[in-house]
Design a protein around this nucleic acid. Structure first.
Lengths: 230, 230
DNA sequence: TTTTGTGAACTAGTTCACAGCT
DNA sequence: AGCTGTGAACTAGTTCACAAAA
């Protein structure tokens, strides 16, 4: 019954919600480690962000038995395991498509570099931008050089930050160049071939959901906001 | 049983997943309207983005009966309803906290202006930035002017794009100034008082979930990628 | 006939509660 | 005693399938 050191049997079918939380756990462990903690219980971890202790244990249980009963989890140990599970134990190379405001900001975003991602290339079609660099020093290439640069820099992940009307076209290009994982910021429903993972961040949807909340709560403003019932 | 023209009985308890989809529906309807379509069925709408027709009907049913049996939905009509439900029938004022790369990019992001949001203020602590403007013309104020400007510009939504270590502090300030809805881009677990809505976009988590996918699929590369089983 | 609106069935995700290690 | 790992119970979300309306 002991798993023979690799991953657990059911590990193929891990939900996206779980993997997102693993990222969050890792971030918290980095903090705890920096603060000098050697062990942490799921209880304490759960209180930090507003989460349930059983959920944390279940999430981790998908990948092995990392805890020690009566003690909790060894911070450094669990950190290492999470990094390995998330594939952060080697450097991943990232390219950003579109050197507009958003593309340039993402290319220089410190949060990406921090966890071991290397953003090594920006792409654009505007010849005025090609050949220059982002403030942080990421070179801007012409989109026609895509295939070549992606091979050379061994790009693992492409970030799409181009206008909506060219998003699908650009996606097709990076897929053709062999990229298997894409983070999309354009507000479009994009099609990807099987075997390629697409994750979308929709900024407009996020803002509009706040607008929805405000519209609802102004209507029922006489009620105590936040948890009005019936 | 007919709802008396306003919202449906159970409309208070609408899930976030549903409201996010409403945004997406609206975007699609804008496209259809521009393309000259007068009606659309849930079936057709569902095929556009990869979604289920029953789900679209259920989502809409939370707010009323907008469809016509045998016909579908009148595009202009449904569009107007969705705009009203999402609170986009009036202009919402947005302030961006943090005039770094990301804050400046968000302040000028065209997708926000498009659906009727007005980004009217940026805030920062660096005196070198204060008094200047973003490329798109949004003025940068000192954070000490926060309360005053938020009142004057009637800010409805604050976007947090400051470094992680000052995120909670900045959040407290905008809440104290009376803002009831916050879009957070910092990678922190933030606390908000009841009655304030916080929505977080975590860029690092998004990238790391792609990393996880890649790590998994390289391990089992012999298998047909995308839906490998057992 | 076509397509909505919706109860019923199903699937996924979360929380509880406790046996079993340390 | 303390805390993990996990089946069982529960809750939320999705899809099916069909009666009722145009």
């Amino acid at each position: 019954m002991k798993n023979t050191n690799k991953a657990k049997p059911a590990a193929d079918q891990v939900s996206e919600l779980t993997t997102n939380r693993l990222s969050v756990y890792l971030r918290c462990l980095n903090l705890l480690d920096a603060a000098g903690a050697t062990t942490v219980s799921s209880q304490v971890l759960a209180e930090q962000f507003h989460l349930n202790a059983a959920q944390i244990r279940k999430d981790l249980a998908c990948f092995g038995e990392f805890g020690v009963r009566g003690v909790g989890y060894y911070v450094k140990d669990l950190k290492r395991h999470l990094r390995q599970i998330l594939g952060l134990d080697r450097q991943l190379h990232v390219a950003v498509m579109g050197a507009g405001n958003l593309g340039l900001a993402l290319a220089d975003y410190p949060g990406f570099r921090q966890e071991g991602f290397a953003i090594t290339a920006l792409f654009d079609t505007l010849s005025a931008k090609v050949g220059r660099r982002s403030r942080g020093g990421v070179p801007i290439y012409d989109i026609t050089e895509l295939g070549e640069v992606i091979k050379r820099d061994r790009i693992d992940i492409a970030v799409i930050a181009v206008p909506a009307d060219s998003a699908q076209h650009v996606l097709n290009m990076v897929v053709a160049a062999g990229v298997k994982a894409i983070l999309n910021f354009s507000p479009e429903t994009l099609d990807v071939p099987p075997g390629v993972k697409l994750k979308s961040v929709d900024l407009t949807v996020s803002l509009e959901s706040l607008s929805f909340y405000l519209a609802r709560n102004e209507a029922g403003d006489h009620e105590e906001a936040g948890d009005a019932r019936a």
